[in-house]
Design a protein around this nucleic acid. Structure first.
Lengths: 338, 338
DNA sequence: TGCTGTTTTACAAACGTTTGCAATTATTTT
DNA sequence: AAAATAATTGCAAACGTTTGTAAAACAGCA
């Protein structure tokens, strides 16, 4: 059927001719629908369908319209955490009929970031940032241009932000381990430059204190949210004169590293030592034993972020909002009562 | 520093004024560098830097230049397999200075696909397709418009294709299991509509035959390349009067499902039964026991695909190429000698 | 029927580039 | 020194839209 063919060389002018109207009428039908007679509208729509016309997004956006593209800036694609958020974003944007332009900074946080902004301006209507360690000049630039953006899981003044209850999550995790009878609970931190890592450490500390357990700095070792970054701290923990009976890793990836390091020593999990993660990425189910962890609603964070961004694009005067989603303890098989 | 600020409202005209040349000279400096005096070039470049000028991709592409954006069409983001390929693509495109526009079809393979093509035309310079089950009218449309595209892990006449040795990989895997002494080897297929699934099944069958083992249809059950899709077939295999001593799942995701189903019955892996996967996604290392599998160079496939696409964009007359990368057996802990 | 006020449609001017062609300038050659 | 040639540069016309403004059409009303 001719109507099924999409011909990229058809312009608004062809449609106008076919429908016997002026090209601006076609444009109005296709964008706003404002003040076009119903019968005319139908005629135009038919012509569009008949010719297989497709709007040229470049031209539209050049002429001042919106591109219906949003830029997404992520550090990399190599960890389940980001992927889950991206899935949420993608799903939501799909519903809202926006396209997704993906930038990975590849940890080259300085140049790449500013580079991406450059390109994004003019190409996208808004920007979604999942870039821990982002410096503020970045958001300031965006603000100065009043370019819509949303930050995921990171802070900055005067910004739209989506994050989750890192402090409470860590508190709950620790509380759970204490309930199981653990008193010496090792903690492997995230990348301490990140607020989330600080909050999680603080949640751990507070839960300890609230339960009358002294906070012992020897039980805290610095990790960096990666698998391999957790192995050495784990060994240090295990080498302690009185090693912990449970280890709480600041995220799942770290917990997997811990799992491996612990197992390398011939210890059984959870019989000999309990391990707790944070994030609840899909791999938790694959690990053996399945990881007990704090669920972060990653996909939902993606949804929210996308929705907030689009709201902002469509209503530029909206004041910044900060939404914090709740975490939740997910009990699986890596922790056991003492 | 002023030179560090990127101002999106600066146009080529401003640069031209600052550098005291015409705007077309600026354009030439920025695109081709053809026939511009060295000193002029310098002057322009300085002005660009000084003003923080950034080209407007929309305008460039409208005017007939290239957008330096490539579209990527994937079914979804929820499995390690796609993610790995995407990482490769992303890394390569980064090097080649192209941006990545991501479309997920969300299994709505009909409408979404054609919809994406529409948008892509005019927005991207080329298309990367990781869309199993793509019908040929799709590629035909692309060909008719001589729009550059590359297919990853799927076939179509007259197309640039990157895939890997599915047949040989399955053959090697089976051969390995046979070497370990297994004679009754169950096979859980992939989605049989896909060539890769057919090839893998055939590789398995041939290896059996080459080793003088009769091909027993009862040992083959149909899966669909997903985790949950492998559970029932696994149970069917296990319910056989004489159950297999090893199960070869057509991909890792299926193997994980098998792992779970087997474990649910209280069987030990690999002591009671050996399990073999295919793909070598990162999760294999997390699984317990770590999965023995066939390594597919997923990231490298992404690299190749990206590179082939860009070559094609820059040299439209190139004849289609079909590149097949080699798979490799990776021995871990899920298979044992009988 | 002629006026007024709406609703609808058409025209024209952007938007910021690229690129063919013409004009200018510099370099050789004679 | 003039002519011929080559190297640069500039102008103008696209590219396909959106949108402000002006014109046309239509309805309601006196």
């Amino acid at each position: 059927m001719a109507s099924k063919n999409l011909n990229p060389n058809i312009t608004i002018l062809d449609v106008a001719r076919e429908a016997n109207v002026s090209y601006s009428t076609v444009s109005r039908v296709l964008s706003g629908f404002e003040f076009v007679k119903e019968s005319t509208k139908q005629r135009v729509l038919e012509a569009v369908d008949h010719l297989g016309y497709v709007v040229n997004p470049q031209a539209r956006s050049l002429a001042g319209g919106k591109s219906r593209v949003i830029g997404l800036l992520v550090p990399a694609l190599d960890n389940g955490y980001i992927n889950e958020i991206v899935r949420g974003i993608d799903a939501e944007l799909n519903k809202l009929d926006y396209d997704l332009l993906l930038y990975t900074t590849h940890r080259d946080n300085g140049k790449e970031a500013s580079y991406a902004v450059k390109l994004t301006k003019g190409l996208a209507d808004g920007l979604l940032l999942i870039v821990p360690l982002l410096d503020n000049t970045y958001t300031e630039t965006l603000q100065a241009q009043s370019f819509p953006y949303v930050l995921v899981d990171q802070g900055a003044p005067n910004s739209f932000i989506v994050d989750c209850t890192n402090w409470q999550g860590a508190y709950d995790a620790t509380q759970y381990l204490i309930q199981l009878g653990h008193k010496r609970i090792g903690f492997i931190t995230g990348l301490m430059a990140l607020i989330s890592a600080q909050d999680r450490l603080d949640g751990y500390r507070t839960a300890l204190l609230d339960n009358g357990i002294k906070f012992d700095p020897d039980l805290v070792h610095v990790g960096n949210y990666t698998h391999s970054g957790a192995e050495q701290p784990t060994h240090q923990l295990l080498d302690l004169p009185v090693p912990p009976t449970a280890i709480f890793a600041a995220n799942d990836l770290s917990a997997f590293g811990t799992l491996e390091a612990v197992r390398a020593r011939g210890l059984r999990i959870p019989e000999d030592i309990s391990i707790m993660g944070f994030d609840d990425i899909p791999q938790c189910l694959l690990a053996y034993p399945q990881l007990t962890t704090i669920h972060q609603p990653l996909e939902q964070m993606g949804h929210m972020a996308a929705r907030m961004l689009v709201e902002q694009i469509e209503n530029p005067e909206l004041p910044p909002r900060h939404i914090t989603l709740a975490t939740k303890l997910v009990i699986r098989n890596s922790c056991q009562a003492l």
